[in-house]
């Protein structure tokens, strides 16, 4: 047996720059050589215990629970939103009617738009909690993690799970753009309040905007691919009977959202969804202001429905 070391020369003080400069060295507060790590909590217990149920949110598992619950709400929103948008294929009139119907939710029982606003507020709260829990858990994990100088291999983590903290912010930025584009009309020179069909066509017929929508929706699908599975784990919904279905549910959900949402920019680009730059609503309003052109209503309606596949 002639085992030898040939060299013991190469010495590196730092590996590839994969982490903060404190890696592999002293943590703060630096334990004395004899003091066990168990005496130095990385995240000391919260000083104030909040009253129930807020106390649940003080723990990481509680935050994950809230993240999953709000995730379910957001999944519901994304699905309904996507299905609602399918009205695009029925033409501008139907789409506008759908939009109106949303404002009319609750019928005469409650004042108009109250239900819609209730849903919006709920949605904003869900977004807020989803983002806050994600943010604070990320901070917690960052503080707990000491990265490997020689790098870390992944054998189970999917691309989706590893990029949640990237796809999340991408979706958030996209959401702002999306609202600014379609709700507030900041970026759309031909924006017509109350004519979603026209606004969609006007925006998505621009190639850069279409690409942006495609990228963002791919990110959304990736986010859902992991999130819609992960939420079962966080909620503790786990049984050998249906565990295989959880993954399939997440895959299916992500696929449905992806296909549905990608169809819009693609079909606009393909001119399948098109109003020839004419806004039904604008025409209609113009008509109301100038009754002489009353005959235009039918004509433009026909144009629109003609464009519907």
């Amino acid at each position: 047996m002639s085992t030898t070391t040939k060299t013991t020369t190469l010495t590196e003080t730092q590996g590839p720059s994969t982490g903060p400069s404190t890696q592999g060295t002293v943590r703060t507060p630096a334990p004395a050589a004899s003091a066990p790590s168990a005496e130095f909590p990385v995240h000391p217990k919260p000083r104030v215990r909040l009253p129930w149920p807020l106390s649940i949110y003080q723990s990481a598992v509680g935050k994950k629970w809230v993240m999953a619950l709000t995730g379910i709400a957001l999944l519901g929103f994304v699905l309904v939103h996507m299905i609602g948008n399918l009205h695009l294929y029925e033409g501008p009139v139907k789409l506008s009617e759908y939009a109106e119907a949303l404002r009319d939710l609750g019928g005469d029982l409650v004042p108009r738009t109250w239900i819609l606003w209730g849903m919006r507020i709920g949605l904003i709260a869900a977004f807020g909690l989803h983002i806050h829990s994600a943010w604070s858990l990320t901070v917690m994990s960052r503080r707990a993690d000491a990265s490997y100088v020689g790098g870390r291999g992944y054998s189970a983590a999917s691309y989706a799970s590893r990029t949640m903290r990237w796809t999340g912010p991408i979706i958030l930025l996209y959401l702002f753009y999306h609202l600014a584009d379609f709700t507030w009309g900041w970026f759309n020179p031909d924006f017509v309040r109350g004519d979603p069909y026209h606004n969609v066509v006007a925006s998505l017929s621009s190639i850069p905007v279409a690409i942006l929508y495609v990228v963002a929706n791919v990110a959304l699908a990736i986010h859902i691919y992991h999130g819609a599975w992960s939420m079962f784990q966080s909620l503790g919904i786990n049984s050998p009977k249906f565990n295989p279905l959880r993954r399939r549910f997440a895959q299916g959900f992500a696929a449905v959202i992806l296909i549905g949402n990608l169809s819009f920019p693609i079909f606009v680009q393909a001119d399948v969804i098109d109003d020839g730059g004419v806004s039904v609503v604008r025409e209609h309003e113009a008509q109301m202001a100038d009754p002489e052109e009353a005959s235009g209503e039918e004509a433009s309606g026909a144009t629109a429905s003609g464009a519907t596949p």
Partner: peptide, 21 residues
């Protein structure tokens, strides 16, 4: 046990790396 764990460690994001290792 969960709350003591959270004093020292990060938050699970369900990667599944632990099960693999």
């Amino acid at each position: 046990m969960v709350e003591t764990m959270e004093e020292f460690f990060g938050s699970c994001t369900n990667h599944g790396e632990c099960e693999e290792a």
